[in-house]
Structures are given as C-alpha cells and as structure tokens.
C-alpha cells in the first residue's frame, strides 16, 4: 500500500487510541523525563490490572447492548467477603474469630461465586423479567451494597476496615513471580482468556449477534435470554475477581470499596471503542481504554498537577474519543 496522505490519515484514525496513548506518554516524558522508567510502567500496569478485569466484564454487557450500574458495588461486596475469609489466624481483630486459615483459593472462589450470583440475578431480571438494564442493575447495586453494609457491620467486626490477610492472599496483589507482579500476570491471563472466548468460541460470537440485533439473533436460532444471562453472569464473575484483587492489592477492604468503579469501567470501554448500542467491542480496545485513564491519573499526579484536574481531563477524553469514533464509523458506513 502506498503511503499517500490519505492513507496515513486512515491508519492514524484506525489506530487513534494507540496514537493517543503514545502521545500522552511522550508528553509526560518531555515534561518529566523520569516518567520513562520500569517503576512507573510497573505502577501503571498494577493499578490498571483490577480496573481492566472489571472493564472486561463491563465489555460483555455493552456488547449485548446492556448496561450495568452494579459493577462497583459487586466489586465492594466481593472485596469484603474475600477479605473476611482471608485473614491470618494471628490477626487480633478477625471477622470470624473461630475460622481457621483457609487456603487462598477458598476466599477467591467464594468471592467470584458471589459476583457470579449477582451477575446472574442481573441477567435474569433483564432477560426474563424484561426490566430495563439500567433499572435492573441499579436495583441490584442497591441490594448488593445494602447486604455488604449488613455483612460488614456484623459483630465482632462492627464496620471496622478488614486487615491482617494471609501471606498467600496478599501475594495475589503485592507479590511477584520472576520479577513480574502477580496482579499483572492475573490480569494478563484473564485478558487472554476473554480474548480467546470472544474470538474463538461460538458463545463469544453469539454475544455479538445478540448485541447487534436481538430479533435477527433469535431468528437464526440463538437462545437470546440464555446469552443475556451468560453475559451478565460472566461480568459478575469478573467483578468478583476484581474485588478480590482490590482487597489483596490494598491489604484491606471496607463496604465503600468499588464505589464508582462501574462508571470508570464504562468510560474505559467506551473510549476503547465499545458501542452503547451493542454489538461492538474488542479486548485490545478495552485494554487501551483502561490504560489511557490510568496513565492520566498516575501521570498528572507524577508531574504534580492537582488531582482536581484529573476528572476534567478524563471527561474531555471520553467526549472526544466517542465523538471521533462516531465520525469514523459513519465514514465506514
């Protein structure tokens, strides 16, 4: 292909997200050369890890033309449940004083299971009761948050922040294998699995079909309700894992964990090219979307700009990215 001016323009437009991310990096490095270091990249990837897992869940929902306002609260519930089951026996303020130390996998699986259940309920309410997804997931968000506060306030804990996690559990968020932080490895593995599921399996393709047009999907023999429930359940499970990692990473958990994460996830997905109309969304796009937001929040603090500005920049980026996307897609059609 010849590199004519219009060709270059097209390549730039098609890879706009990567260009934006690269551009942000370059600007930050120009302002502060120390930004180009392994520690900075490691920090950004670690901070992006939980957000990425949550955003991947959100991506499933957007692909089936749904909406999910419960993500953050499910993350919070999973964090508290995992935290309450992952305390070391020597910690003096245990949530369950009589509980022996459990293998790491137990709190992880239970928390993911709780997330899955919340997602499943979302799916059932949307698919079977035909409640608008905004309302269904708003309702579940409140229910989940309420239960989380009740659980968190159980005596003897009485709403004290959880702590004293076992070494194994903390290692999920803070440890490293062969020099690479475990949390990054976990996020990378999740990303690859979700990518393969989406691209290589029938179910993955059916998600797109349902999101593109429910009627067309139904006519071609897809069980639309089942696919919807699947999408919400998968999202719930990923939120659950996100909650586990957030607790492990920060070494604590409270009922306010995850507040607002659903909006960050939606924003990352949308900037990453997911359409709110459904049927569109790619894993690499979501990865870049998440990275863009984390580079902003980390980078602005790094160069010493007030944290109040972060939200302004984030808002502008959301609007610009989506407005450009609309134009790009219009040209294609």
């Amino acid at each position: 292909m010849e590199l004519t001016q219009s060709n270059i323009k097209k390549i730039l437009m098609d890879n706009l997200l990567y260009v934006v991310l690269l551009f942000m990096f370059v600007i930050l490095i120009i302002i502060s050369p120390a930004f180009l270091s392994w520690i900075v990249i490691r920090d950004i990837l670690m901070q992006s890890s939980t957000r990425l897992i949550i955003a991947l869940g959100c991506m499933f929902i957007l692909i089936v033309a749904g909406a999910d306002l419960s993500g953050g609260r499910v993350v919070g519930l999973a964090a508290v449940i995992a935290g309450s089951l992952a305390q070391s026996s020597t910690f003096y303020n245990k949530f369950f004083p009589m509980l022996p130390e459990l293998p790491v996998i137990v709190p992880v699986l239970i928390a993911i299971g709780i997330g899955l259940l919340a997602g499943f309920l979302n799916g059932i309410i949307v698919a079977k009761l035909e409640v608008n997804p905004f309302i269904a997931t708003l309702g579940i968000a409140l229910v989940v948050y309420g239960f989380n506060c009740l659980y968190f306030n159980l005596p003897p804990n009485n709403s004290q922040p959880l702590g004293g996690f076992t070494k194994g559990f903390s290692a999920l968020g803070g440890g490293a294998t062969l020099g690479i932080p475990n949390i990054i490895i976990i996020a990378a593995v999740c990303t690859i699995i979700v990518y393969l599921f989406q691209r290589k399996t029938c179910l993955g393709k059916e998600l797109f079909a349902v999101g593109g047009s429910k009627d067309a999907a139904r006519v071609s023999g897809i069980n639309v309700e089942k696919i919807l429930v699947l999408a919400y359940s998968l999202a719930g499970a990923l939120y659950g894992l996100g909650g586990v990692l957030e607790a492990a990473r920060t070494g604590s958990a409270t009922s306010t964990y995850g507040a607002g994460y659903e909006m960050d996830a939606i924003a990352s997905c949308v900037v990453g090219g997911c359409s709110l109309m459904g049927g569109v969304g790619s894993v690499p796009g979501v990865v870049v979307g998440v990275l863009i937001f984390n580079v902003i929040s980390y980078g602005l603090t790094f160069i010493g700009i007030s944290s109040y500005w972060q939200n302004v920049f984030k808002g502008v980026i959301i609007i610009c990215a989506v407005a450009l996307d609309v134009r790009k897609n219009r040209k294609k059609n």
């Binding site: 120390a34 900075v40 920090d43 922040p161 957030e246 929040s297 603090t301 790094f302 010493g304």
Partner: peptide, 14 residues
C-alpha cells in the same frame, strides 16, 4: 485506601 495508594505510588516515583 486504594486511591491513596495509587496517588502516593505516583508521587514516590516522581
């Protein structure tokens, strides 16, 4: 806690 952790990590690196 999580927000403080992220922001402080950045200031420390800088």
């Amino acid at each position: 806690r999580g927000k403080a952790m992220n922001q402080v990590a950045s200031v420390l690196a800088a």
